[in-house]
Simulated assay, not measured.
Amino acid sequence: MPGAPPEQWWPPVAMTARWLSENAAEFDVLHVHFGLESFTADELRDGLDAAARAGRPVVFTVHDLDNPQIVDQDPYRALLDVIVPAADRLITLTPSAAAEIERRWGRPSVVLAHPTLLDEAADPGRVTDGETVRVGIHLRDLRPNIDAENAVRAAVHAARLLERSGPAVEIEVLLNENVRDDRTADRVVAAADGHAAVRVRRTPYLTDAEIEQWLGGLDLFVLPYRHGTHSGWVELCYDLGVRVAGTDVGHIRSQHPSDFRVVDLDDPRTVAAAVTWARDDSPSADEVVASRRAQRRDQRRAVRDAHARLYRDVIAGVQA
């Protein structure tokens, strides 16, 4: 948004009826990804009606069937009930999400995997010592779908279990300095309980490069979600050859099933088992990253081509 501070979220004006009407000559397709929660159902309907009056097709990529930014999902589901039936084409990231969309709204979706999040010029290095299993959890700014306290308690209990029987482990929990709930942040720090293998570290907002560097030093990344649909973290971990353990919510496990292990934060044994799995029978990190880099480069081209074809088809369909 022009004039907004760096990294500041701003409601997308391109979804408003006024902007769409005034700028119809400037675009051919309205492709919606995120930001629905910034509007009421009536405002969203007005925007879609404005696009239709202008003869501009709407493509909606259904990243989120549950919104990670909010607790009460009913208003968000009401927004989906507006846009999913109205969009000219739907895209989603996984076959299982497409099946849910078909079941709920009776509409097919084009399934296009999320392409790599790494810059083509980046050189993602991996730094692990080969003995201690390094585990990371990023609680970000404590957005509503992150089960922060439970994640840290599970990490502490898992570390204790592994002391008796398992590999040496170091678990680093990152937490933004600026959070949505300072009291919860204090409880998260206290939940580490002074265990030597579990460290909570407060940080400023990390850049993409800083996140990639941190993830590249891990063997396992833990995703402690209460609800959600898909995850960019899973995509980035796949690029970097880092295995993921996460709660079984949405369709996250469908993104890269071979690199994803389901855990139950109420059962620390599952977290301890995931730590052991993160190193069992795994090829060298460098081999994995090199192989995936070529695969993801090809995939990115394929996804771009698929979008171009879809845009051409949907424009032709509206103009027919």
Rank of each mutant, 00 (worst) to 15 (best):
L90I: 10
T92G: 02
R153Y: 11
R53Y: 09
N67G: 07
G136N: 04
R143F: 08
R77L: 12
A99M: 11
Q69E: 13
Q69L: 11
V82F: 15
F60R: 10
D72M: 12
R77C: 04
A87W: 00
L93N: 07
V110C: 10
V152W: 01
L65F: 12
G55D: 12
D74I: 15
G125R: 14
G136Q: 08
V71N: 12
P124E: 01
R103S: 13
P68E: 09
A86M: 07
D66M: 14
D141V: 15
V127L: 09
H138A: 11
L65H: 06
D66F: 13
P68V: 15
E163V: 12
P75I: 00
R104H: 12
R126I: 15
R103V: 04
V58R: 05
L162C: 00
R77Q: 11
Y76I: 06
A121E: 15
G106K: 04
A158L: 01
D64P: 05
R134D: 06
D64K: 06
V82A: 10
L90E: 08
I70M: 15
P124M: 00
A87Y: 00
G130P: 03
G166L: 01
L112F: 06
T94E: 04
E149C: 06
H157E: 12
R89Q: 11
S109R: 06
S109V: 06
R140M: 14
T61K: 06
D72W: 15
W105A: 08
R160V: 10
D123T: 05
A151H: 03
G125M: 08
